[in-house]
Design a protein around this nucleic acid. Structure first.
Length: 579
RNA sequence: CGGGAUGUGGCUCAGCCCGGUAGAGCACUGCGUUCGGGACGCAGGGGUCGGAGGUUCAAAUCCUCUCAUCCCGACCA
């Protein structure tokens, strides 16, 4: 591509809307433009990167035996009513009406559609296993779209759905997708982790997330510094050490009520009593479909709502506003405690071994000192309810856990028969028995993967694309358009690169050299070839890689070293993990 | 949906408190000079000041409403 003819509107200044680095750079590099909140157009450069990721995905999905389809973006309400998700999915589901006032939605995901398709097609175990995928635009009406392509409302996703005869076979499909995903993200040049995850709204009983490590990531993951345990922070567990130390003699026979004006946070309470947060407990009211309950954890811990939801067996969980807690329960937020409670109490497993603790008195402005588990309060329900922290012990091997931030680019789920039951997708097995198909689903955020790659590969001058997804592998800079020799050489080299199938951008613009260098850096071209009048006189072509690992001068009359270099780059920069 | 903020040429923003001629830089057009890390000079084009209503002799500026966007919390590829 000739730069002079390409629609590549690079920006010197950063639009104010951009917060994170990938968003800023994608705007500046002329890859995307915003149309509305969370809705973006792909410009030529952005689309090239996107297509590169898509191509890698297609290759690996096909290699794993999946077949590409394209399902409708607009889906009838009936299907969603049949699966029960029409009422359940919430406001994220963009609902639309056609001219006959019939209800439709713009697909946020395609379990219903694919299951409907398959139930009409698949009759026999002989047709299984089956794995179908598509790369398609989805719409989720996110409460708060942000960060450019990282959290758009309209976004491009690869989603795959597997159908198997039983759990064991579904496990094989899952495993094969897990491997395919590892290959995909490796080939994209990303530093990622596959972590155990909560299966969330999609449903199902087992899932892994693929998380690209990045400071700006919205996800936190816990991983073991020793073994290969890694899990989303929401799911992560830590090893519980039951230190059966006998509690020291109680200092008093009963808790003492102490006036603690304006002490509503753990920190304020701990400071007031002159103790560490670990000597207090945090009491929080939650509301779920099962009613109100109180959750109690050590003062220095954070409640993990996912674990609370699971421990309760609830469908949903939220923290009611303080006014509601006051009105409904007559309890003062900031001074809550587990004593003399009229609602169910859920206690973290660490609490019983805390000894004497400080907690709220359920009376505004007062806390209780010298509270003892067992004597002063008790609970039938005890569980692991807290978020893991760096330094906690790995549940598998007991080594230390570390916490990293990352961007979720892929998510795979074992769905089981959740959708096949609802939508009556069955087949006849070898014995002629009718059975529900066992499903799995597998998603990759394609645009988000491009953003994540940038988030992980940039410097002060712009994007440093991994070779595999770089829109252009080579930038050829002609610094002296007026020189006939230089231009003739560049034109020849340009055509030669093209004929070798190397995607190249030839900067033939009538611009000053500085502009060309800046643009080549900004758009992240891995290899830069530069020729100006001086170089031509010396008979050399300047070759520099974006990450500066290569910086040399090659003779103009021998291109063999250049081809060798390009082959190396291509080979090194899209590694596939050795299995 | 809560909490905070912002809407002024394509982009970044000043002007608003204290009402009176709409500004700068970047980008764009023309000419000239320049030419290895986002050049310079001169001359230009381009703005219903988000929208509606109000106050006023007079509103970008003050008031009311509305829309949009961004940032902080719950959802998710």
């Amino acid at each position: 591509m000739r730069f002079s003819r390409m629609h590549l509107p690079t920006l010197k200044e950063v639009p104010a809307e951009a917060e994170v680095i990938s968003h800023r750079l994608m705007l500046r590099a002329g890859m995307i433009r915003r149309l509305a909140a969370g809705i973006y157009s792909y410009l030529p450069l952005g689309l090239l990167a996107l297509r590169n990721v898509e191509e890698i995905i297609r290759q690996e999905m096909n290699r794993a035996g999946a077949q590409e389809v394209l399902l409708p973006a607009v889906q009838p309400a009936e299907l969603w009513q049949e699966s029960g998700r029409w009422d359940f999915y919430g406001k994220e589901l963009l609902r639309i009406k056609d001219r006959h006032q019939r209800d439709y939605c713009f697909g946020p995901t395609h379990e219903e559609v694919i299951t409907d398709l398959i139930r009409h097609e698949v009759r026999s175990y002989r047709q299984l296993p089956l794995n179908l995928y598509q790369i398609q635009t989805k719409f989720r009406d996110e409460i708060r779209p942000r960060f450019g392509l990282m959290r758009g409302r309209e976004f491009i996703m690869k989603d795959a759905y597997s159908f198997d005869v039983d759990d064991a076979a579904a496990g094989l499909s899952y495993q094969s997708m897990r491997e395919a995903y590892s290959r995909i993200f490796s080939r994209c040049g990303l530093n990622f982790r596959a972590v155990e995850a909560d299966s969330g709204a999609i449903g199902g009983n087992f899932s892994h997330e693929f998380v690209v490590l990045a400071e700006s990531g919205e996800d936190a993951i816990a991983s073991c510094t020793d073994c290969d345990y890694a899990a989303n922070i929401e799911k992560a567990e830590s090893r519980f050490v039951d230190s059966a130390t006998p509690s020291p003699e109680p200092t008093a026979a009963a808790p003492v009520e102490v006036a603690t004006p304006d002490c509503e946070s753990i920190k304020e309470v701990a400071d007031f009593f002159g103790v560490a947060p670990e000597a207090t407990i945090k009491s929080m009211i939650f509301e779920s479909d099962l009613g109100f309950c109180m959750v109690v954890v050590p003062g220095d811990c954070e409640v993990n709502e996912i674990k609370v939801t699971a421990a309760l067996g609830a469908e949903w969980l939220e923290i009611p506003p303080p006014a509601r807690i006051a009105d409904e329960l007559g309890l003062p937020v900031g001074y809550l405690g587990p004593l003399n409670l009229s609602i169910p109490l859920l206690v973290d497993r660490q609490v019983p071994q805390m000894g004497e603790i400080i907690c709220g008195a359920n009376r505004a402005g007062f806390h209780l000192q010298g509270v003892l588990w067992g004597r002063d309060f008790k609970s039938q329900q005890m569980a692991d309810l807290v978020l893991v922290r760096a330094g906690d012990l790995c549940p598998r091997c007991g080594s230390l856990l570390q916490i990293d931030r990352g961007i979720e680019v892929g998510h795979i789920f074992k769905l089981g028969t959740k959708y096949s039951e609802k939508l009556k997708a069955t087949f006849l097995d070898q014995e002629g028995q009718e059975k529900n198909l066992v499903m799995g689903c597998y998603g990759i955020g394609v645009g988000r993967t491009v953003a994540a790659a940038i988030e992980q590969n940039y410097d002060d001058n712009g994007i440093c694309f991994p070779y595999a997804i770089a829109p252009f592998k080579v930038a050829l800079l002609n610094l002296d358009l007026k020189s006939e020799e230089v231009t003739a050489y560049c034109e020849t080299l340009y055509k030669e690169l093209q004929s070798r199938g190397i995607s190249v951008i030839y900067d033939d613009r009538n611009e000053r050299p500085g502009v060309k260098f800046k643009d080549a850096d900004l758009i992240g071209v891995p290899l830069r070839l530069t020729l100006g009048r001086k170089g031509y006189k010396r008979g050399i072509l300047e070759v520099k890689s974006r990450n500066s690992s290569v910086n040399e001068e090659l003779p103009l009359d021998d291109r063999a070293p250049l081809w060798r270099l390009l082959d190396e780059l291509a080979a090194n920069d899209s590694r596939i993990p050795s299995q």
